[in-house]
Design a binder for these strands. Structure first.
Length: 303
DNA sequence: ATGTCCCAGTCTCTGGGA
């Protein structure tokens, strides 16, 4: 199974590139974030032409997540119980946009789950946090605590992976220069502790395990030639269960998708998993003998 | 690094978010 995650920064703006990328990479399951698209406006017909089913969760201008699969898409779940919702920021006078008296603050479309070929897959877009101690930062930490509860509930059931834009760089090795991020979000101890709590439940960082010592980034600011200078962060993660980590065959960031005309500011991250140990991979048939020579391929015997 | 891109509404510019 080839599994990918990509913060596309608007699926409508990125549609031509997304379709070309799907046709080229042929992932089996794709987690998308920042689709910035209402669920009923998602370009499902366009991706269906490439063989993908769609499950989308979005309400318009901001956020939005989706799952694409060509290996089945069952038991779709939009959002999760522990999502705290966001009350908005206080006005100058101190009134929240959604006071407590109006009930719980509304949940944003930041998570969608489905079962694809026996694997429980979640696409998540973790709140950005803006700056440390901002209301949005506390929302981010509460949201990650809710995600931890979701993982704790679902992880024991079988193969599980949560993929997406976590807006947290797990370690200092995941940013181009730790000094550049002092006083900023994405690197603070509480954010990293929230991520670590997911690992304590048993989730494994598939890309970092495959490349323990590599400089690997998935996001580069549009400004100041950051991509060209490879000044980025690794904040797009695939966190898989023990069973999936054992099936890991390859993991990489598709930097090519960050180049050229009108890219997202994030690159897709792709992992290839071997078949499940008990999966039926079909009869074992030796390949035809067809050695390539300087004069071209030898003709196969006629049937 | 504060250099760009995206969205919707105020709609051919602006403000907010990242």
């Amino acid at each position: 199974m080839r599994l990918a995650t990509w913060n596309v920064n608007s699926v409508k703006a990125r549609l031509p590139r997304l379709l070309d990328w799907l046709a080229d990479k042929r992932p089996d399951v794709v987690c998308l974030q920042e689709t910035k698209c209402a669920a009923d406006a998602f370009p499902a017909a366009e991706v269906a032409e490439l063989g993908y089913e769609t499950a989308a969760h979005g309400d318009g201008r901001w956020n939005g997540v989706a799952l694409l699969s060509r290996v089945g898409l069952d038991a779709v779940t939009r959002g999760f119980d522990g999502d705290p919702g966001y009350a908005g920021e206080p006005e100058e006078g101190g009134e929240a946009l959604f006071p407590v008296s109006d009930g719980p603050p509304p949940k944003e479309p930041r998570a969608i789950g489905a079962t694809c070929a026996g694997v429980r897959v979640w696409s998540v877009y973790v709140p950005n946090g803006r700056v440390p101690d901002h209301p949005h930062y506390h929302y981010k930490l509460q949201w990650l605590a809710g995600l931890r509860d979701l993982v704790a509930a679902e992880l024991p059931a079988g193969p599980f992976v949560v993929c997406g834009d976590f807006n947290v760089a797990p370690t200092d090795a995941d940013v181009f220069d730790p000094a550049a991020y002092v006083g900023q979000t994405h690197v603070t101890p509480p954010e990293r502790a929230a991520l670590a709590s997911l690992h304590e439940l048993g989730l494994r960082d598939l890309v970092r395990e495959r490349w323990p010592d590599r400089r690997v980034f998935t996001y580069w600011d549009y400004r100041a030639g950051m991509f060209h200078k490879d000044l980025g962060m690794r904040i797009d993660l695939l966190l898989g269960s023990e069973e999936l980590a054992g099936r890991l065959k390859a993991a990489w960031v598709d930097r090519h998708a960050r180049k050229g005309t009108l890219p997202s500011d994030h690159a897709p991250v792709i992992v290839d998993l071997d078949e499940a140990p008990d999966g039926d991979i079909g009869p074992v048939v030796p390949p035809p003998s067809n050695p390539v020579t300087k004069r071209g391929a030898k003709k196969l015997p006629q049937a």
